[in-house]
Simulated assay, not measured.
Amino acid sequence: MRPVIRTSVLSLTALLLAATVAACSSPAPVKDAPDAPDSSSTTGDLSDFSPYYPVAEGNAWEYTATYPDPVGIVTYTETMTKVEQDGDEVRATIARSFHYENGMNPDFEQDVEYVFHEDGSLTVPYQSLPDTSGAKVTVKSGELVWPSTKEFEAATPKTGTIELTSEAAGVSLDLSAAFTITGAGVESVTVKAGDFESRKLAQSIEISVPSLSEETFTVDTTTWLAEGTGMVRTEIPGLFGAGATTVELVKFTPAS
């Protein structure tokens, strides 16, 4: 495998994890979505709008992510800073702050936006950011969309494709990432924040680099989601001989 392809795949793995972490929350039992408020722009607490995610200004999460060496442990926080009604959708801004415990990379902050739809589906940011493998991946088109509540309950896959560009070592490559996201039952999970009865979400992203190789690379992610809390654990198996990456919830603080 060419080194630039390996670097690009590792970069996309990091982006997959970034997209997974803040977006996951447990769907409630299937129910009709409530009517959207009359106002086209309402801020504050819209918890009842979405059965898929606790939506309220001030919700905060603390996580610990463990990457293979040499990255090690990354701690980060997420805070929902803005919630806005936009027609039949709700847009929420989440401020994220990352800290590399070994100082390998500088700390950084970013804001991302999630879009909640009336059917319970959720558009999450497959955001562009530099990662420890030395590449920068930029999204050109496409969106990562989580299943609606009914799709999750029925284990109906949500699929789509994201087109990206990866820049590493002076080389720019076009990549394609085809994703499949499926509900996978309920399991008990123990993490630093406590014990949770959690729904299991299986994600698979098939990455291809058409200009260099016909070979494809599949990245599988498993995420456990506790109702009323959100994502409690995420796992990505190791690639190219590296160890697995895990993320665990340390603390969830609901809006007061």
Rank of each mutant, 00 (worst) to 15 (best):
T77C: 02
Q127I: 09
V71R: 06
T156L: 06
P70R: 08
Y76F: 15
E151Y: 06
D119F: 07
V145Y: 00
A65Y: 02
F108R: 07
Y126I: 02
T64C: 03
G134P: 14
K150H: 09
V145L: 04
V90C: 04
V124M: 03
Q110L: 08
P54S: 05
K158D: 04
E62K: 10
Y100Q: 10
S128D: 13
F108C: 02
T138F: 02
V139R: 14
M104T: 15
G142S: 07
A56D: 07
E109I: 08
S141V: 11
G103M: 11
T66L: 07
D86M: 06
L129C: 07
L164P: 01
G72C: 09
T93S: 10
V74Y: 03
A60R: 11
E113R: 01
S141W: 13
L122T: 10
F116W: 01
D111A: 09
E78T: 09
H99K: 15
T66W: 02
Y53P: 00
R91P: 00
L129P: 05
G142C: 02
F116A: 04
G87C: 03
E89F: 01
V71C: 08
N102E: 07
P147T: 13
E143W: 12
E84L: 12
G160I: 10
D111E: 14
D111P: 03
T81L: 12
Y53H: 13
E57G: 11
E57D: 11
E57Y: 04
V145R: 02
L129S: 12
K150C: 05
Y100N: 10
E153A: 14
L144I: 05
T161G: 07
F98N: 10
G58V: 06
T81S: 14
T149A: 12
R96I: 11
E84H: 09
L164S: 09
Y53K: 10
V137G: 04
Q110E: 14
N105C: 13
L144N: 00
V124G: 08
H117I: 04
L144E: 03
E109Q: 14
A92W: 06
V139A: 01
E62Q: 14
Y126R: 00
H99Q: 15
L122C: 08
P70F: 09
T79G: 03
A135E: 08
V145G: 02
I73G: 03
V139Y: 05
E163V: 12
R91I: 14
E118R: 10
T79E: 15
G160Y: 04
P54C: 06
D131H: 11
T79N: 13
I94H: 00
P106N: 13
E101P: 01
S141C: 13
P54N: 06
K150L: 11
G134V: 06
G120K: 10
S128T: 12
A60F: 02
V115W: 06
E113K: 04
Y76T: 00
T123S: 08
T77P: 00
T93E: 10
K158C: 07
D119T: 08
G58P: 14
P54V: 09
